[in-house]
């Protein structure tokens, strides 16, 4: 007979077989988000010579159901940047509140400090990477469009793993497959951005949104499009 303390008060192994301690566990292992629920699809963006164009449709899908059809997925931040968010919509709403509180604290003092798009992208990438390291990711992919510290056009992405990526044209979700190759015809290299006009960029994005509506079953024909330049940014319904 086993006289060791860990065997006290338990059925004897030699009579009942080895004791299965897993039955004592009252808690399941902690699990966080393992898949998104209500989702938004692609976000597209193109840099041009003095700004960035960004677009995302207004649909939030629940699986294959087009659940909400007036969801704004472009989120302006302090007139210098716009964040386009794809992926889980409730996580997007959390990010929206996070940016809201950041905006509130940034505006306590009126002495002229403001976060530019580059700062904002750095911040968001830290948030996303922290969450993935906690194994509790925010299920989104974001494009941050705007101007950097030198008022140059800025465009960069961050995803649920905290991975960041920069390019003159960017597209998330289905758009990464369908729109990105088309957008690269506009500018496939940083050096070409200087030759892209605003009209050309807007036209390319609109064309891609159309292609996506035709090919992506989780997309919608109503979308938001925004242009950020030195003169400020504005979101339009489409």
């Amino acid at each position: 007979m086993n006289h060791l303390p860990q065997a006290w008060g338990r059925p004897r192994d030699d009579v009942y077989g080895p004791y299965d301690a897993s039955y004592l566990q009252s808690r399941l292992p902690q699990a966080h988000t393992q898949s998104p629920i209500v989702t938004g699809t692609s976000v597209l963006a193109v840099k041009f010579k003095d700004g960035v164009v960004i677009a995302a449709d207004n649909l939030a899908s629940y699986g294959s159901l087009a659940r909400f059809t007036d969801v704004k997925r472009l989120r302006p931040f302090n007139s210098k940047s716009i964040v386009g968010i794809g992926g889980d919509v409730s996580d997007m709403q959390y990010l929206d509140r996070l940016l809201n509180s950041l905006d509130v604290t940034e505006n306590y003092s009126s002495t002229g400090h403001s976060l530019n798009a580059k700062n904002l992208h750095t911040y968001l990438s830290k948030v996303m990477y922290k969450r993935r390291s906690d194994i509790n990711p925010l299920w989104n992919q974001m494009l941050v469009a705007g101007l950097d510290g030198n008022d140059e056009p800025f465009l960069s992405s961050v995803d649920l793993l905290g991975t960041t990526f920069s390019s003159p044209t960017l597209a998330t979700g289905f758009g990464a497959h369908l729109a990105q190759p088309l957008l690269r015809k506009v500018a496939d290299d940083e050096s070409k951005v200087a030759d892209v006009t605003r009209e050309r960029a807007v036209e390319a994005v609109k064309e891609c949104m159309k292609v996506l509506f035709y090919r992506d079953a989780r997309s919608l024909d109503r979308y938001s499009i925004a242009v950020v330049t030195k003169e400020g940014g504005g979101v339009e319904g489409g």
Binding site: S109, H113, L115, N119, T122, Y123, K126
Partner: peptide
Amino acid sequence: KMTYGRPIPLER
């Protein structure tokens, strides 16, 4: 510097 990539505003 780490979180925003910007030098901290002195006032702050």
